[in-house]
Design a protein around this nucleic acid. Structure first.
Lengths: 207, 207
DNA sequence: TCTATTTTTGACCAAATAGTTAAACATATT
DNA sequence: AATATGTTTAACTATTTGGTCAAAAATAGA
């Protein structure tokens, strides 16, 4: 029945997310996913035909989760300084909710960059040219009005992303070396960082 | 003979570096390393006893490569602003020479954070407490002298690292989406970034 | 040159792993 | 109740994989 089918299908997908995102494509065993979902291994192949197919599904869902905020950053028409505040706040919040995903995406795309080609193909949002034109316009407006100093769009965008993503992705190293491997201490650090990042970026581009 | 032994041992290590750093521990096959080294698979086990041991060796060497610059950043006694310039320059240069290593380290530590414990144990440099005391002192000095605004050491340090490392680690995503998958374009972008990052950081902490 | 030691190899093994199949089970339809 | 359809399982297969071993080849020492 549809009710039950969706349940099992969803249970599999949830289990697959958990294992794939933590151990990566090559580090994941189908048996572990089956165990975590509480079902037989053959059922995995009944719903998703192969490991690769299941993996793609998980990857696409994970990737899509981080698209909307980027899209807002690029296309919404808040003034630039306001936009930075909003983006940093909501992106760091999202990252705290899904800390494994960025590392997962980065790692898997490094292993096989082709995955992105397929995704871009499916996603009209990021397929279009002139992706950054709108944001660039807003930045230029800010410059003309003397609100910020001249700054190249992509450099700025990447810097903001870097400041948000890096502490989550490199957590084991940073927590291990600079925080004496204390998870609670690192958690407090992350919570406090939102404001630091916002001020850091805005100061950096202040005229 | 020692001459030949070192040669084979080194050939294996070089091949192992290449494969492990690109495909990760779980994605690597011993056979592939043997092929790349041009030797029999059994020889791998003759020189390094197991996949795990060979992997550890590769990981430790890769990790150690990125220690000295961090050490300089923490312990040398240049004034803070000068130090930032020097660190960003030399770190980005190092990253361009070894673009696969940071992603490799981040990924493997995510898979198994225990690795870092062993490494810290072996490395007196990063084992010591009060790692950041010296840098903190220099920052406080800069603040007192009115050269920079008040800023928390770890936040600043992590921001600098983030700005250097992220564009290399997340290259497939960023190049794919913001640079139309053009490697040369991205290469030019990276080359030009050194100066942008230095100015960005120094502006961010300007009083 | 003869012998001992080290290096290298091909053949092999046991365990793990993605995927298959045929049958059992459950559910809906009539 | 009988049948058809969809779901789940246990058992199995073929292949891959890390690792071993005994013998061959190369090298060193006498």
């Amino acid at each position: 029945m549809t009710e039950k089918e969706l349940n099992t299908e969803q249970k599999i997908l949830d289990a697959a997310k958990e294992v794939f995102q933590k151990k990566g494509m090559t580090g994941t065993r189908m048996q572990e996913i089956a165990d975590k979902a509480g079902i037989n291994k053959a059922l995995l192949h009944y719903y998703y035909r192969s490991k690769e197919k299941l993996f793609r599904r998980v990857f696409e869902i994970a990737f899509a989760l981080f698209i909307p905020r980027i899209k807002e950053m690029l296309f919404s028409d808040k003034p630039i300084l306001e936009k930075i505040d909003y983006f940093v706040d909501s992106y760091i919040e999202l990252l705290q909710k899904h800390p494994y995903i960025p590392g997962f995406i980065i790692n898997e795309l490094n292993r096989n960059p082709e995955i992105l080609v397929d995704i871009v193909e499916k996603n009209i949002l990021i397929k279009q040219d002139h992706l950054i034109d709108n944001l660039e316009g807003q930045i230029n407006q800010g410059i003309e009005r003397g609100q910020i100093k001249p700054v190249e769009v992509r450099n700025l965008l990447i810097n903001i992303l870097a400041l948000c993503v890096f502490p989550v992705v490199a957590r084991p190293v940073v927590q291990g070396i600079l925080f004496d491997n204390d998870p609670e201490g690192y958690e407090r650090f992350l919570a406090q960082r939102k404001d630091f990042v916002k001020e850091f970026v805005k100061n950096a581009i202040k005229p």
